[in-house]
């Protein structure tokens, strides 16, 4: 029993790791007023760029190739995050549309490149999982401090609440939002790098499997608070872990003619829990007031 609890705990932590990384990106972006559905695309691109770069540099040894993989994920995340900021802030595209477009781009491009470059698949040594876990444990506190204790964090919260009000206080929204959304791309892409470099040691075209959306749900679940969002990530991580444990242990439960431990049904759990969470949280939680508003030209 205690062994089950242990493996559930570790499972929860490890499943929550990429969710937390992406959710911190989500918090930064949404607190600054930019809806971030693109987390999904950031994760996928980060996963591919990381594993790809690690594969290319594998001949220089494990450490170098791991570092380069991380660096590649950070870079692709920054580029796509910047793109999302540019589209929403400069071309005034609807935030959801921009996010969907980036997700499509990430999905199409990684699929194409993967099939073209690695028709036989690939495998890398990668990076130990605990490194990401440590990052995921520290990051929520760091983001919290950043938001509450620094001038930049105050500016970020201000532009998310009211771009106009911030401007009247002498703070222009654009640089803050660009930085916040770019950083969100980096963090989510690191979540992706965890999936490919540390967890799977390879790439599959559906490696993100909605984790970006679930990370976003964790953000809302945590009421846009970094620690709350991390809690949300743990909550969803637990369901993934539970599903895995039940499958590994061949635990099955039949009731009313339905196999409740069927993998498809267990798969549904995080998504159902997300809807339930959204249903009960929103209405009480107040999102940043300027979230998703299109920009006025001035």
């Amino acid at each position: 029993m205690s062994e089950l609890i242990m493996s559930l705990t570790w499972g929860t932590l490890y499943y929550a790791t990429p969710l937390t990384l992406a959710a911190m990106g989500g918090v930064l972006s949404e607190k600054a007023g930019v809806v971030n559905i693109a987390l999904e695309g950031f994760i996928l691109s980060g996963a591919f760029a990381g594993v790809c770069a690690a594969d290319v540099t594998s001949k220089y040894g494990v450490i170098i190739s791991g570092l380069v993989g991380i660096l590649a994920a950070i870079m692709i995340g920054a580029v796509l995050g910047f793109l999302h900021a540019f589209l929403t802030q400069k071309t005034r595209m609807d935030h959801v549309v921009s996010g969907l477009g980036i997700n499509l781009l990430a999905s199409g491009a990684t699929q194409y490149l993967y099939l073209h470059e690695y028709p036989q698949g690939l495998s890398v040594t990668g990076i130990p999982r605990w490194m990401f876990l440590v990052a995921a444990l520290v990051l929520p506190f760091a983001v919290q401090l950043l938001l509450v204790r620094t001038h930049w964090g105050l500016k970020l919260r201000a532009v998310g609440e009211s771009r106009e009000g911030a401007s009247m206080a002498g703070v222009s929204a654009l640089p803050v939002r660009f930085a916040a959304v770019t950083l969100s791309g980096v963090l989510a892409a690191l979540g992706g790098a965890y999936l490919s470099l540390a967890d799977d040691h390879n790439f599959s075209t559906d490696v993100s499997a909605g984790k970006g959306y679930i990370a976003l749900a964790a953000v809302i679940f945590g009421k846009w608070n970094p620690l709350g969002a991390a809690g949300g990530a743990l909550f969803f991580g637990f369901f993934y872990a539970l599903q895995t444990e039940l499958q590994i242990r061949h635990i099955s439960a039949h009731f009313l003619g339905i196999s409740w431990t069927n993998s498809f049904l267990l798969d549904m759990l995080p998504y159902i829990m997300t809807i339930v969470a959204l249903t009960s949280v929103i209405g009480k939680a107040v999102p940043p007031a300027d979230l998703g508003k299109e920009e006025a030209t001035d």
Partner: peptide, 30 residues
């Protein structure tokens, strides 16, 4: 300084935050 009819204070932030927002500072920490 402008005291306008609208949009000036950010309602969700504390008064102190509103005062500190965008004010001159030598350190990044509030």
């Amino acid at each position: 300084g402008l005291v306008s009819q609208h949009y000036s204070l950010i309602p969700a932030l504390s008064i102190l935050d509103n005062l500190m927002l965008g004010s001159k500072s030598t350190t990044p920490v509030l």
